[in-house]
């Protein structure tokens, strides 16, 4: 057992955990931040993705002790960071995921949104291939990838004030009424 002082979502949090506890376990079971999901627990699925010093990493394969001294951002910290940066409402990525229906069961969503946020912080206007590459470490077991990609593109469209993408489900369906969109 050791005392850990962690910087999580801008808060300085003190807790104690054994050496072999992962960052994910400490976030979920010591700090009560259950937004980061425990999926495969062995580095395949990306559901536990958090940002460490701004970069997406897997909390299930990071020891809590190794995160001491780094800035950790979980899904719970996305909106506060957005507000602190002068924004209103939720982070545009969260808003776009909501409006595009970019979730089915929702389990992959926190990791997806954090990876997308890190991508947009680094490259504000990525193309579809760059988005796919950046999100390629996050699996959606419901296979709802199309809406996820559209959500990221919608967030980009809003920040660049360009036309948001037309949802894929309306394409090749000439009978969809315009007012249904």
């Amino acid at each position: 057992m050791r005392v850990l002082t962690l910087d999580v979502n801008g808060d300085r949090l003190e807790t104690a955990a054994p050496d072999h506890w992962t960052l994910l376990e400490v976030l979920r079971y010591k700090l009560g931040l259950t937004g980061s999901k425990q999926g495969c627990d062995k580095g395949d699925c990306g559901a536990c993705t958090v940002l460490v010093d701004g970069k997406p990493v897997l909390a299930c394969l990071t020891l809590a002790a190794e995160a001491v001294g780094s800035k950790v951002t979980t899904i719970e910290g996305l909106r506060p960071a957005h507000l602190e940066g002068g924004g209103t409402g939720v982070d545009p990525v969260q808003d776009a995921f909501d409006r595009c229906g970019a979730l089915q069961c929702g389990f992959c969503q926190p990791g997806m949104m954090l990876t997308a946020r890190a991508l947009l912080n680094e490259n504000p206007n990525p193309d579809r291939t760059e988005i796919q590459k950046a999100l390629s470490g996050n699996l959606c077991r419901c296979t709802g990838y199309t809406q996820i990609l559209e959500a990221v593109e919608t967030a980009i469209a809003e920040s660049t004030e360009s036309e948001p993408p037309r949802p894929a489900w309306t394409q090749d369906h000439p009978h969809v009424r315009e007012d249904a969109l």
């Binding site: 580095g43 990306g46 993705t49 970069k55 997406p56 990493v57 897997l58 394969l61 990071t62 990876t115 590459k133 950046a134 390629s136 470490g137």
Partner: peptide, 9 residues
């Protein structure tokens, strides 16, 4: 090698 997060780690 692997995926983006795993290459970062």
């Amino acid at each position: 090698v692997a995926g983006p997060q795993l290459r970062t780690m």
